[in-house]
Each structure stands twice: as C-alpha cells, then as structure tokens.
Write a protein that binds this DNA or RNA. Sequence first.
DNA 1: TTGAACTGAGAACGATCGTTCTCTAGAGTA
DNA 2: TACTCTAGAGAACGATCGTTCTCAGTTCAA
Lengths: 185, 185
Amino acid sequence: MDSAVARERVLDAAGTLFYGRGIQSVGMDEIRGASGVSLKRLYALFPAKDQLVEAYLERRDTLWRGRLAEYVEQRAEPRERILAVFDHLHRWFGEPGFRGCAWINAYGELGASSDRVAAQARAHKSAFRAYLGSLVADAGLPERLADQLTLLAEGAMVTAGIFHSPEPALQAREAAAALLAAARG
Amino acid sequence: MDSAVARERVLDAAGTLFYGRGIQSVGMDEIRGASGVSLKRLYALFPAKDQLVEAYLERRDTLWRGRLAEYVEQRAEPRERILAVFDHLHRWFGEPGFRGCAWINAYGELGASSDRVAAQARAHKSAFRAYLGSLVADAGLPERLADQLTLLAEGAMVTAGIFHSPEPALQAREAAAALLAAARG
DNA sequence: TTGAACTGAGAACGATCGTTCTCTAGAGTA
DNA sequence: TACTCTAGAGAACGATCGTTCTCAGTTCAA
C-alpha cells in the first residue's frame, strides 16, 4: 500500500472516530483496526498521537471551510451569501453522525492541557470569523455585524450539537436576517 | 471532620480542578490532595468518579444560575433585565480562571461516551433558555426572540472561552439590543 | 537460490488511573 | 489497662493505552 494511501486511510479513520467519540476515548489500536494500517506504519506516519490529532484538526479545517465556501459560492447576491452560511449550517446539523463543532469539542476536551489544540481551535474560529467578515464587507455592511453573525453561528453549532437538532440554524438565520435588515438602516 | 464539611471540600476541589483542567485529566488522587479528604472517605461520599462528576455539574448549575438571576434581579425594567444577562456574561468572562462554559466543555469531552453528562448539559442549557424565555415574556416580546438571544449568549460563551476574552459579551449585547429594537416593531 | 531488508501481527512494556485493600495509630469505652 | 472500632496514609491491583519490540513471513536484488 502506498504511503500516501495509508496516510489517507488513517486520517479517514481518525476523523470518524475522533469526531464521533471524542479524542481521548479513541485509542491508537482502534485507529489501526479501523484504518487497516499496522501500528508500525501508523507510528511511522505520525510519531505520536498528538501529531495525528493535529493532522486531524488541520485536515478537517480545510475540508469544513472548503465545503462552506463551496455552498456559499452558489449564491450571487451579497446578502443572500451571508444567509447561505446559516443554510449550510442547517444542512450540516442534519447530517447523520453530526455531533457539534469538532473544534469546540476538542477545545473542551484538550484546550486546557494542550496548547496546540487550543491554538488550532483559535485558528479555525478566526478563519471562520474572517470569512464572515469578507461576506459582510462584500455586502457593504459594517464590520461589527460580522462579529454578531459569528456569535449566532457559534451559538447554533453548540446548541445543535448538544440537542442533536438542526433547528438552531433556522433560529440563527432568522436573527441574522433581522440584524441585516436593521443594519440596512 | 464532619461528613457534610468533607463533602463540601471535595466538591470545591473537584469544581476548581474539573473546570480548570478538564474532567478526564484530573485524577481522584489529585482531588484527594486538593481537598484533604482521604481516598477512603472520598469513595464513601462518591462511590465512583462518575457520581462526583455528576454532583460537580449539578452543584455548578445551581450556583451558576443563581448568580445570573441574582444579577438580573437588580434591574427592574424588563428590557434592561434581558440586557443584564449579557452584562453578567461580560463580568463572568473577565473573571480569573474563566475557561468557557463548563457544560459545553464537559459535553465536548464526555458527551459522546456518557449519557448522564450529555443529559446534564441539555438540562442546563434548557434551563438557561427557559430563564431567558421568562425574561422575554415579561417584556411582552415574542418567544422566538428568546431562542435568538440564547444563541447569542451561547456563541459568546464559546468564543470568550476559546479566545480568553470578555469582548464577545459586548458584541452579543449589542446584537441583542438590535434584535430587541427590531422586535419593538 | 540465497540473503538482506522490509512489513504486519500482535505481544510486551511502562505509565497512568480508578478503585480496593492493608496496616497502623488513635479515640472511645468498660 | 485492654479491647474495639474508626479513619487515614498509602501500597496494591487491574484495566487501559501510548509506544516499542519481537518474530515470522515476504519481497527483491544479485
């Protein structure tokens, strides 16, 4: 098996397991079993669990933000693009296996004991906030609105995760629309 | 030492340690050391770590919601009382040792593996949402607003926790005020 | 064909941690 | 004083888990 393929399989397995059950409750041996990659090879690719965790969060960040942007790009009108973020959240919340935001969960689990995990959570959230900022700027709206919309989105992620319900996305979208309307002046 | 006193000391120590470092990274022996209560006694009071975790979350729920209500009660005007929730968050976020919402963190850490923890997170968040609902009803505002304000508050807690900054409370307060103004009609 | 290098399976190691057990010292009582 | 009961200190136990090691099988070059 190609080394790149093995790496991919490990990251796939780790992604599913870490996200679905939490990082600390998944052992390296379980990742070996799920990926079909031997422990020896696994440790050759990722010399320690920390590094696999880091790679998991990094890859998920790329995928997650890529999917969001891909969805938003389908809309042309600037305000529609902002609301599309919440439509995307709604779609995501309804997916089978949804269990909240991976970075919020990882931060809750390891943020206090791992600077790397805490930094990755901050980086991901900063990137999300920056993306919303760009959408808000494109719509010619005040930057302060981006912070407010970010909070709505984060609140929706947390609440949808804890209650296993997609509804918070609709509530957040409605609030976002109200804030947009108010900002219109 | 009185049994009630020992229980209190254990809960104090567990509260500080669990909140500050996460539940799984704190061992029973460390709680013994911090509380000064022997392992034997500790296990007589809480037969398993799960039960101590449960007691920790339960007690914190009482204290946390009590403090919030106490702060809000100082205001008389219904809309002021709603905004006071965000002022209270701002005060909380600025406290030394603040590390986000204990239930969001506990859910991220153990929600997937412990039904009890997941249920306690849901119960706490439901109670918070219900409290906001009562404030919104007292102000004669539509119930839907309570959901939206809840999301702002949750988003502020998450963001303040990850970035160690009290500012999200101010942003959430501003958004809340805008939503209130828009709802005024 | 032979031997060297690599690989996978899984045993082994060492640390951590939840939980229980042992032993000892002291308090209370006849 | 002698006996019993309790409680604390901390050793011990058993499970889990990250990481490394062993060994047997396989590939591949000469």
